[in-house]
Every structure is written in C-alpha cells, then in structure tokens.
C-alpha cells in the first residue's frame, strides 16, 4: 500500500525549551487506521498539530500525498480534516452554519445536500439550527467531527475522540470511522486506552517522552499485551529455584519469597498445569497465588526502559 503521510527525522522543541518530539520517523499507509497511544504529555497532539500546520517543526520533513507540508501547504491541508482534543467551538454559531463555514475555509463550494447528509450521519440533523453553546459536550464533539469531515478530506485526524464521550456515542463514532475507512479515508487517532486501539486500529504506535517507541501491526502488539504473569508467594524464602523447576522460565524475587512465571493467554498451551504439578511435587509451601495482566503501563515502562 502506498504511504499517504511520510515523516522523516521530525523534531520539535517549543519556545520553552521543551523537546516535545525527538527524531520521529513514521510512514502512514493510505486507507489504514493508525492509533497513537501514549501517556499525558507524550507528544501526540504536538505530532498531529505539526502535520496539520498548527505547530512549526524545528527540523525534519513531512509529506502528505507526496506534497511538502510547508512548501505545498494548500495541497496538504486541503486533504486533511482535524478533530482537535479541545472542544473549541464558536459558541454563537449555528450547527449547519458552522459546518458550511468549515467547508468554505477548506476551499470547497457550498453543498447543502452533503452537509445535511453529514449531519444525519452524526445524528445532529434535528439540531441543525441550534446554537453550539446550547449543545451538550458529546454533541459538540460530533459537531467538531462534522466540521472536520465537511470538506471531504482523505485523511482524518482524531485527537482523543473518546474523551468525555458516553458508550452510545463511542459506538456511533466507531460506526462512522468504519464507514469512512470503507470509503478509503486514512484515519489517525490518539488515545490513552489500549482497548480502543484494539477495537478499531490496524496499526498501533506508542509514543512516550517525544519518542516513537514502537509501531506495529495490531495483532503483533496484542500478542505482547496478552502476556500474563503468575506470581507465587512462598511461606519460606528460598535462596535459589529448586532443581526440579529450572526447566520452567521462572524468576525469583530478591527476597526469595516470590516466584513469577510469564505466559501467553493466547498461546496454545500456557504451561500452567505442568508447572503447578511440578510445584506440587517439589518441597515448596505456597502462601498465595495471583495473576497479573501486563498493562499498557507495563508496556510503556518496558519500552521506555529498553529505549533508555
């Protein structure tokens, strides 16, 4: 598949001296859904804003559909729709008007039918003559999505689309995204939640501290996410792992009281049964057993450790 966005050696240092993006290299494929995961302050919004022309890159090069975002900004920007993280809206504008305004801003001729259909798709049609300030937060977010789609972009950026959104709207949103993807729109969204990425993304990128730590097909990442840890607490501390258990991939805590075992819940066999049998046959006396799912945080921590 062809790359629709290509980012090369992108760095951004804000006036404050803060290095928000550190040498980002990323190719985004046409038609894919890419989820960018990362903790607060990771640089997700900065990355998106830079591609959209809201933040000037300190160095590096970005092309959209082969056009340079600075030299050919008209070409690149007209292909992009942006739903910002903040709910910034002109409070006194009306729903239909504000979508038409956005369409015009991006250089498209008025098209009443298209905007009306868009409003219907977003379940906003009955609100089309309402002032934006009279809408609920979730509806305002829909309006922002509508504004971003008003000029029929080929690339859609959604910066934390599900912040402050209820289950119903989230489902609607996934439906809309699905429809857009089918029509060939490339979608890039940011989120804090791995489940969200799991639900809809084709590829997942993890950003932390301004670095792109990982970019992988979702299924590969999910494999890693499927890892669980079995923690066995012993009654008496031991100095080393007993002979009979060395064939298992066990690790012993420093105080000799905990044994931990990593396994993959999605694997054909987890090895738990045989491990438990072996423990049973050994002299070890157990105090407690618990299991832990490796969380997104764990992955972050591991990745950050690895990259440091």
């Amino acid at each position: 598949m062809k790359n629709i966005i290509s980012i090369k050696n992108l760095c951004k240092t804000y006036n404050t001296g803060h290095e928000a993006l550190k040498n980002i290299n990323l190719d985004i494929k046409e038609g894919e859904i890419l989820a960018l995961l990362g903790p607060n302050g990771a640089g997700k919004t900065t990355l998106i804003s830079t591609i959209c022309g809201l933040v000037s890159p300190s160095s590096g090069k970005i092309t959209v559909d082969g056009f340079d975002i600075i030299k050919n900004y008209r070409e690149t920007r007209s292909r992009i729709g942006l739903v910002p993280q903040e709910l910034s809206i002109a409070a006194f504008d009306k729903v239909f008007e504000t979508l038409s305004f956005s369409r015009g801003l991006f250089g498209k001729k008025p098209n009443k039918g298209y905007i009306e259909q868009l409003l219907k798709d977003l379940s906003l049609f009955d609100k089309k003559d309402n002032e934006l300030r009279a809408l609920s937060g979730g509806m305002k977010r829909r309006v922002l999505i509508g504004k971003a789609l008003s000029h029929e972009p080929r690339i859609l950026f959604l910066d934390e689309p599900t912040a402050g959104v209820d289950v119903e709207l989230r489902k609607d949103m996934w439906k809309i995204i699905d429809r857009l993807r089918k029509s060939g729109v490339t979608i890039i969204l940011t989120t804090h939640y791995i489940e969200e990425a799991e639900e809809i993304a084709d590829r997942v990128g993890v950003i932390s501290g301004g670095k792109l730590l990982l970019i992988e097909e979702k299924k590969d990442l999910m494999q890693k996410m499927g890892q669980k840890q079995l923690i066995i607490e012993l009654k008496k501390s031991i100095s080393s792992i007993p002979e009979s258990l060395t064939s298992y991939d066990l690790s012993l805590s420093n105080n000799g009281l905990f044994l931990s075992y990593r396994y993959d819940t999605r694997g054909e066999r987890t090895g738990i049964t045989t491990l438990m049998k072996a423990i049973n046959n050994s002299e070890l006396e157990l105090k407690d057993i618990q299991t832990k799912q490796s969380s997104l945080e764990d992955i972050f921590v591991n990745l950050v450790k690895e990259s440091a």
Binding site: E75, E86, S88, I89, L105
Partner: peptide
C-alpha cells in the same frame, strides 16, 4: 475572539 476561544485552529490549519 477565535484566538481566545480556540476556534482559530481551524483557520490556521486551512489551506489559506
């Protein structure tokens, strides 16, 4: 006003 309310993002990201 658009600067204050944040809506200026749209103008700044438009092909203008």
């Amino acid at each position: 006003f658009p600067k204050f309310s944040g809506t200026i993002y749209e103008v700044m990201s438009a092909p203008l």
